[in-house]
Design a protein around this nucleic acid. Structure first.
Length: 343
DNA sequence: AAAAGTTGCAACCGCGAGACT
DNA sequence: GAGTCTCGCGGTTGCAACTTT
C-alpha cells in the first residue's frame, strides 16, 4: 500500500522519460479500444462488483477486460477502492477523524494513503478532498499559507484543542443521556458503540423532497436514470446542523461558533463497555478522556492556548471560532486515542 | 426566476516503485 | 540487466449541486 516511501518521486529521470512514452502509447491504445471515461453507470458498477465477487480483485487490466468493462484497469481499481468496496465509509468526517487527520497530517504531510490507513473505511481520496476543501479553505480565510507556521500553530493550538473539547462535551452529553441504557447493555455484553453509523447494510437516504429512503449499502437506486449519481444525496440544508447526508445525527454543538474557553479540568469519564474484540469499536470502561494538552502537548498549559487565540484574533482579525465547519458530528474520543496508540 | 459564482467530490492523470519476464 | 507490466500514490480537473446576487 505504501508504495512511494521516502523521496521516491522525481528521483529517476530516465525511467520517468520511458514511463511517459509508455503512458502515451498506452493512451493511444486506450483511444483505439474506445475506452470509456467519466462517471460510472450502474451497469458498470454491477459488472465490476459481480466480477470481483466471483474472482477477487487484483490484476486490474485483465480484470477490466474479463469483466467486459470498457475501462482501464486503473479506473476499475479506483472505482472499487474509493466507492464500491464494501467497507468504504461514507458521510461526514467525524470530529475524531478530523482530529486524527490534523494530527497525522502534521506528522506526515500529504501522505494521504498513510493517513487513510489509520481511518478505517476512509479512502485517501476522501481525506485528500477533505483537506483541500475544508482545511485549505480555512487557511485561505486566515490569509495564510496552509504550510505556514502560523497556520500550523493555529491548527495545533486552537482548532485541535477545540475539537477535543467538543468531543469531550459530546461524550459527556451522550453519556449522561444514555447512561442507564448503556449499563443495561453492558451487562448483556451487547453494546456495540460504532464510530461509524453509516456503514450498515441498510442506509438511510434523504430524498430531495425530504422523504427518508432506505437503500442497500451500495448506493444504487438513488437515481432512476443509468448515470450514477454521487453516492449519497447531499443534505438540503446549507447549515447541515441537524443531520448528515445519511440521516446520521450531527450535534448542534458541532459548530465552532462558541468562543474558545480553555479547559483545565476537563476530564470526562465514559462508563461503557470494555469489549476486547478488535472489530468492535467500543468505548473502554472508565476511559479517561483528557484535554488536548494531555493528548498531544503534555508540556503546554491552557494559558498557552488562550494566548494563542488572543494573538490570532488580533493578528488576523478573525474570530477563529467562526472559521470552522459546521458539518462535524460527534463520536467517541476513544476511537482517536485508540488509533493514535496503534501508530 | 435566472444568471453568476462557489463548493465538494468523483474521476482522471502523470509518475515512481516493484514484480515479472 | 533490460524491458514491460501492474500497482498505488499524490496532484489536478471537470462538473453537478448548491449558494449568492
Amino acid at each position: 500500500m505504501d508504495g512511494v516511501q521516502g523521496g521516491g518521486r522525481g528521483c529517476n529521470n530516465s525511467s520517468s522519460a520511458s514511463a511517459t512514452i509508455e503512458n502515451e502509447i498506452h493512451k493511444e491504445a486506450e483511444d483505439q479500444m474506445d475506452l470509456r471515461r467519466g462517471p460510472w453507470t450502474v451497469e458498470e458498477d454491477l459488472a465490476l462488483m459481480n466480477y470481483i465477487a466471483n474472482h477477487g480483485e487484483g490484476r486490474w487490466n485483465s480484470l477490466a477486460r474479463c469483466a467486459g468493462l470498457k475501462r482501464t484497469g486503473k479506473s476499475c481499481r479506483l472505482r472499487w477502492l474509493n466507492y464500491l468496496r464494501p467497507d468504504v465509509r461514507r458521510g461526514d468526517i467525524t470530529l475524531e477523524e478530523q482530529l486524527l487527520i490534523l494530527e497525522l497530517h502534521s506528522r506526515w504531510g500529504n501522505r494521504w494513503s498513510k493517513i487513510a490507513q489509520h481511518l478505517p473505511g476512509r479512502t485517501d481520496n476522501e481525506i485528500k478532498n477533505y483537506w483541500r476543501t475544508r482545511v485549505q479553505k480555512h487557511a485561505k480565510q486566515l490569509k495564510c499559507d496552509v504550510n505556514s507556521k502560523q497556520f500550523k500553530d493555529t491548527m495545533r493550538y486552537l482548532w485541535m484543542p477545540r475539537l477535543v473539547e467538543r468531543i469531550q462535551a459530546a461524550a459527556a452529553a451522550s453519556t449522561a443521556a444514555t447512561n442507564s441504557s448503556i449499563t443495561t447493555a453492558t451487562a448483556a455484553g451487547a453494546t456495540s458503540h460504532h464510530f461509524n453509523n453509516n456503514n450498515n447494510n441498510n442506509t438511510t437516504f434523504q430524498s430531495s423532497s425530504g422523504q427518508m429512503l432506505l437503500q442497500p449499502s451500495h448506493h444504487f437506486g438513488a437515481s432512476s436514470h443509468s448515470h450514477v449519481t454521487p453516492s449519497y444525496t447531499p443534505d438540503n440544508s446549507s447549515t447541515a446542523a441537524s443531520s448528515d447526508s445519511f440521516g446520521a445525527q450531527v450535534s448542534p454543538v458541532s459548530d465552532l461558533t462558541d468562543y474558545y474557553t480553555p479547559t483545565t479540568t476537563a476530564t470526562t469519564t465514559i462508563s461503557v463497555n470494555n469489549n476486547p474484540t478488535p472489530d468492535n469499536y467500543l468505548v473502554q470502561a472508565n476511559h479517561q478522556v483528557g484535554s488536548y494538552d494531555q493528548c498531544f502537548n503534555p508540556g503546554l498549559g491552557s494559558e498557552h492556548f488562550q494566548g494563542m487565540e488572543q494573538q490570532y484574533n488580533y493578528q488576523w482579525g478573525v474570530d477563529v471560532g467562526d472559521i470552522s465547519d459546521n458539518l462535524w458530528n460527534v463520536e467517541d474520543m476513544w476511537f482517536l486515542q485508540e488509533q493514535l496508540s496503534n501508530i
